[in-house]
């Protein structure tokens, strides 16, 4: 469904992304894991067309994505790391706006809003201003805005940053349901337990390059077991990326 081939992006002498390739199929969640500054957000931004790659292709169902107005972009939904919402507008007004960007209007838009708000459990707050929402509610609305137009591919850039366990769990439930519906999910995060719970496949990036691409079970062969005899993803991650602080 989504294939990324040899993406590269540089900013002057800084190589942000270097020859990144990956693919995600429908009903699967691929986790893009990496330390801060590894190139995860830049990769996601290139997939959505927000950043133009220096090299490489983004293929949707085998066809390359090209240009701002390429209709294939409708198949992609973005849940950005920032809470990209208008605080002074209601939840419904936000979704009306974001839905209209994808050509939704009238009854179809109303139905999409109801469905998205229902999925994230905010139906009863649709008329409230976003500025009155808690951090967790805003995160859920951020997710709703990304899947409003029913995309086949959902790109989630650290969608659970700063939320309490309840909201995080609710988001996990939402993602599980989206997988069930056959959506292809690309999920960037720092939280190992999220990856362990959700990911069907894990791509580890560091310094802009893919350093591992496997299932959790496949990656476990790369690291030593801890005292309890278990090989944690964190141990694998530190084995692959090292222990030096990146920020």
């Amino acid at each position: 469904m989504l294939t990324v081939r040899h993406l590269r992006k540089t900013y002057g002498p800084l190589v942000a992304v270097d020859d990144v390739s990956l693919s995600v199929e429908g009903g699967r969640l691929l986790s893009l894991l990496g330390p801060n500054g590894a190139g995860k957000t830049t990769t996601v931004s290139m997939i959505t067309g927000v950043i133009t790659p220096d090299k490489g292709d983004v293929l949707i169902d085998g066809a390359p994505l090209s240009g701002d107005t390429d209709r294939k972009k409708r198949k992609i939904g973005l849940v950005p790391q920032d809470l990209a919402l208008y605080d002074e507008l209601s939840a419904r007004a936000n979704l009306r706006f974001f839905g209209a960007l994808y050509g939704l209007s009238g009854a179809a838009l109303d139905k999409a809003i109801a469905s998205a708000l229902g999925l994230v459990g905010l139906s009863d707050r649709e008329r409230d201003l976003v500025k009155t929402f808690s951090g967790g509610m805003k995160r859920r609305l951020n997710l709703a805005a990304g899947l409003l137009h029913d995309p086949d591919i959902l790109l989630l850039d650290e969608p659970t940053v700063g939320v309490d366990p309840q909201s995080r769990n609710a988001i996990f439930d939402n993602l599980e349901e989206l997988k069930q519906r056959g959506k292809a999910l690309l999920y960037t995060t720092h939280y190992m337990e999220e990856v362990e719970r959700l990911a069907d496949r894990i791509v580890v990036v560091d310094h802009g390059r893919v350093i591992a691409d496997d299932t959790l079970r496949g990656l476990q062969a790369l690291a030593r077991a801890d005292a309890s005899g278990r090989v944690t993803l964190e141990a694998i991650f530190l084995t692959l990326t090292g222990r030096s602080v990146r920020d």
Partner: peptide, 15 residues
């Protein structure tokens, strides 16, 4: 600054 342009630019609309 608030990341809204990232969302707007990801939509299939022209500059």
């Amino acid at each position: 600054q608030r990341g809204l342009w990232r969302r707007l630019r990801s939509a299939p609309i022209s500059r």
